[in-house]
């Protein structure tokens, strides 16, 4: 119960930051960070996949309602929550991290960066494809995915570094 309340509070803060601040950024005309996925990245390793997806859906839908993109952020977040355990196990073995949530401290710097980068890239790829597919400009899409992912990753690492 207490964990749920804390997580809900974190979610509201992340959604507010996303809606009022980050959505208005468009660095070099192509980089918009989607920091809210930090909540999904930081879920405990033994969190049940169903619960993780429901949280991700709720958060994605909130971001969607605030940015007039119904369904897009929700779809990308649910996908991220679904594949996250697989991505995590690519870089972090079950022995080294049994409980708790992945972070710079618990998984080591290299593994965490690889995990966060892969997850961010997957999420942003689906998000940008759903958002901008009609634009019909493959180079522009790839640039937007790469630039936005780099921006998000930088923000995530910054926060992680402060928490360490």
């Amino acid at each position: 119960m207490r964990d749920n309340i804390i997580r809900a509070a974190k979610m509201l803060v992340l959604v507010a930051v996303q809606a009022f601040l980050l959505n208005n950024l468009n660095l070099f005309g192509c980089a918009t960070p989607y920091l809210y996925i930090y909540l999904i990245l930081c879920m405990e390793v033994d969190e049940s996949p169903s619960k993780a997806m429901l949280w991700a859906f709720a958060m994605g839908l909130l971001v969607d309602i605030f940015s007039n993109t119904p369904g897009i952020n929700a779809a990308a977040s649910v996908m991220l929550a679904f594949v996250r355990p697989v991505v995590l196990r690519l870089y972090v073995s079950r022995e080294s991290l049994e409980h708790g949530s992945p972070s710079l401290r618990t998984t080591g710097v290299g593994a965490f960066i690889k995990y966060a980068a892969t997850a961010t890239l997957l999420h942003h790829t689906l998000l940008v494809l759903l958002c901008y597919f009609d634009m019909g400009d493959p180079a522009g899409l790839v640039l937007r995915i790469a630039a936005s992912s780099a921006f998000t990753l930088a923000l995530i690492l910054m926060i992680e570094n402060l928490r360490r």
Binding site: M53, F57, G60, L61, P70, G71, A74, A75, V78
Partner: peptide, 9 residues
């Protein structure tokens, strides 16, 4: 959940 998202979209 994905179906609901795409339906909304």
């Amino acid at each position: 959940l994905e179906l609901v998202s795409f339906w909304l979209l």
